[in-house]
Design a protein around this nucleic acid. Structure first.
Lengths: 137, 137
DNA sequence: TTTTTATTTTATAACGATTCTAAAAAAGAT
DNA sequence: ATCTTTTTTAGAATCGTTATAAAATAAAAA
């Protein structure tokens, strides 16, 4: 999964039904050629610009959402007012450092969740998110 | 807990170290004289104004945060871009209806969470939030 | 190729939620 | 009552995000 080649990214996009534009390749490489990443759109944009790669903030936003719809990314809600994305789409959970805003993965089998009650009438469970909030000791 | 008298609200505020101003009493009554409530600041403000009670939106924001610091309220993060508060401060979890934005309580003993791993070095767990996302069946 | 059509990117404006500001009002203390 | 501190308020400012509509690019057709 991690450390895909450039062509790998191109294929990834194409098979997700996304045209492999220059900007999408740039974003895709930043996300999938490294390890699992947690980031905000602004973080990512700043990083790309910093590396001299030209992409607008709008394009970053647009494509993070497209990547998400395509199942290549996942959104993580830990703080209101800021959107985090996670390049690990496998089911798993998170530690969230309230002081720094950092996220750390907790693999799904590390934590045990049982007896999730049946949802209210007419509703269906679409996901279970666990956020373990942590602060400086 | 629920259905406190007006004097009860006054005491609640006073013992939390908050001056029982007219606005705080109005907010306090709205939150603690009814059952457990999930709401956004804008929701609450609209409701109060609708009942003919005069409070500014700023004051609602200010006081929801003061109530939260004082331990009378709890913030629930389920969606980025909107803050939800919960008048139930006992540890418990939530169903979140992604279509309507409604929250439903899941009592702490209904759901079972085990094997929460130790947090990263130097950090301390401050809370564990479980959000069960639901959609129309 | 060149042309045509559809999609994407971009700068910029607009937006909604929230926080800030600083002046007026209210609360509590003297 | 008077003074001091806290609170409220309207309005401006800010932040993250989304919308707009024109220019650029990509893919398809000729």
């Amino acid at each position: 999964m991690t450390h895909r080649s450039f062509d790998g990214i191109k294929n990834l996009l194409t098979s997700a039904g996304l045209r492999p534009t220059r900007q999408r390749l740039v974003i895709g490489r930043a996300l999938f050629e490294r390890g699992n990443l947690h980031f905000t759109p602004e973080d990512l944009h700043a990083e790309l610009v910093n590396e001299g790669l030209r992409v607008s903030l709008s394009t970053v936003y647009n494509n993070l959402h497209k990547f998400t719809s395509a199942g290549l990314l996942r959104e993580v809600v830990v703080e209101s007012g800021k959107t985090f994305f996670d390049s690990n789409t496998n089911p798993h959970h998170h530690f969230f450092d309230e002081d720094t805003g950092s996220l750390y993965d907790i693999s799904e089998d590390e934590i045990l969740i049982q007896n999730v009650p049946a949802p209210p009438e007419g509703l269906l469970i679409s996901g279970v998110d666990v956020v373990v909030r942590v602060v400086k000791a």
